Computed example of a mutant assay.
Amino acid sequence: MAYKRVKLNEEIVINQIITFHYYELPGSYVTKGEKHNFWEFVYVDKGEIDVRSDSGEFSVKQGEIVFYKPNEFHSGNSNAKFPPNLIIITFDCDSEAMKIFENKRFSVNEQERRLLTQLVNEGYNALTPRLDKPYKKEMKAKKDSLFGSQQLVKLYLETLLIHFARRLRKTDSLSKLASTMNEKKDSDLTNQIIQFMNLTLHKSLSLKEVYNNFTVGRSQLLRTFKVTTGCGVMEYFNRLKIERAKILIREEQYNYTEIAEKLGYSSIHYFSRHFKRSTGMTPTAYARSVKARIENHR
């Protein structure tokens, strides 16, 4: 029997990236704008940005992504009330299928967020300087990168774009697309828990207080939250506190003692220790690093 080979089609092919960044920006951040002959997307991981582009003026909120096609002018400013964390990737792609992303912004679902996480992790493995290094326009492949990391960046990016394209092709409008984001009961429960935690960032919180506020059993709550987010309830709550602390530091409206009080820490010393344990730097060092990013960009 003669074996026949099947040629596999490639709908979206990316062989080169230009920049790949993960930024935490202050509320005062403003850009003059730019355009370039390659694709760019910006995913808002936290906070909100205000965008001006050839396709109009609009806001991109947490959990949303916006695409800029080649040679499209665009600029983005931080929302002062909600300083953003952004994933920004620019890349070359001549595939016809990319036309679906022209003038598009939309919400990212849970599966796609996991792909984004994998993509960012491999970006750290494959590229230098670090993705969070302030405003470096030239990136290089790491000489000592993990085996296959550059190929995984390519594959994860192509896979992510294919997932996006599939969803966009199935929907007639962005409003219908947003309605499909109401995913399973597990995701709904997790979102409710996170909302509850966000409302209690001003105080200390026990695990018992969390599950006493929901009708499901303790074991089911813990299991569901762990499966959906990848971490435990109290670990997630502590992360939320640190993320909120970062925002308050970047807003530059409160001193560290006031921030500690706002987040329910018993003392500035406990807050500083917790912050350093979570981020690897003191609040003061973190504030300096954010300011350095602004100064390096001017």
Rank of each mutant, 00 (worst) to 15 (best):
R105H: 15
Y265N: 07
F237I: 14
M234R: 07
T200I: 03
R52E: 15
S149I: 02
S204H: 08
V44K: 04
K35I: 01
D45P: 00
M281I: 01
F106Y: 04
S95R: 05
G148T: 02
E112R: 03
G56Y: 13
R239Y: 06
P26L: 08
E261T: 11
E209V: 01
S145N: 06
I268Y: 10
K203S: 10
K4F: 12
V108F: 03
V42K: 08
E110F: 02
S266G: 04
K46D: 08
F147T: 12
L115G: 00
R293D: 10
E122V: 01
I88G: 03
M234H: 04
N37K: 12
S267H: 09
S219V: 11
L86R: 02
G123I: 01
M139P: 00
L222Q: 12
V6L: 13
K154N: 01
Y256D: 10
E24R: 14
I14M: 00
F214D: 05
A97D: 13
K133H: 12
H269T: 15
N109M: 04
T31V: 11
L189T: 10
T200G: 03
P84R: 03
S55Y: 14
L116N: 03
E11A: 11
C231F: 03
F164T: 06
R244A: 15
T159P: 00
M98K: 03
I100C: 02
K140I: 07
I17F: 04
E251G: 05
N213E: 13
K104E: 12
E261C: 00
P283T: 05
L115K: 02
S267K: 06
K262D: 00
T200S: 12
P26M: 14
F147Q: 11
E183V: 10
G264M: 05
A97H: 08
N255Q: 08
P129V: 09
R167E: 12
E295F: 15
F271H: 03
N71W: 15
D45L: 08
T190Y: 04
L8S: 06
R293V: 07
L201F: 07
T215L: 09
K104V: 13
T257R: 09
N296F: 10
I12G: 00
E72C: 12
D172Q: 12
K136E: 15
F275A: 06
S59Q: 14
F67R: 04
V42W: 06
F73G: 05
Y3I: 07
E64Q: 15
C93E: 04
V233E: 04
V210F: 11
R105Y: 15
I17S: 00
K69T: 09
D132T: 02
R273T: 13
I247H: 02
I193V: 15
T180Q: 14
A97G: 03
P70K: 12
L189D: 05
R250D: 15
R273C: 05
C231N: 14
E24W: 07
P83E: 12
V227C: 01
P83F: 09
A260V: 02
I65Y: 04
A287E: 07
K276E: 14
R166T: 11
S107M: 11
Y286H: 06
T224N: 14
V290T: 13
A80C: 00
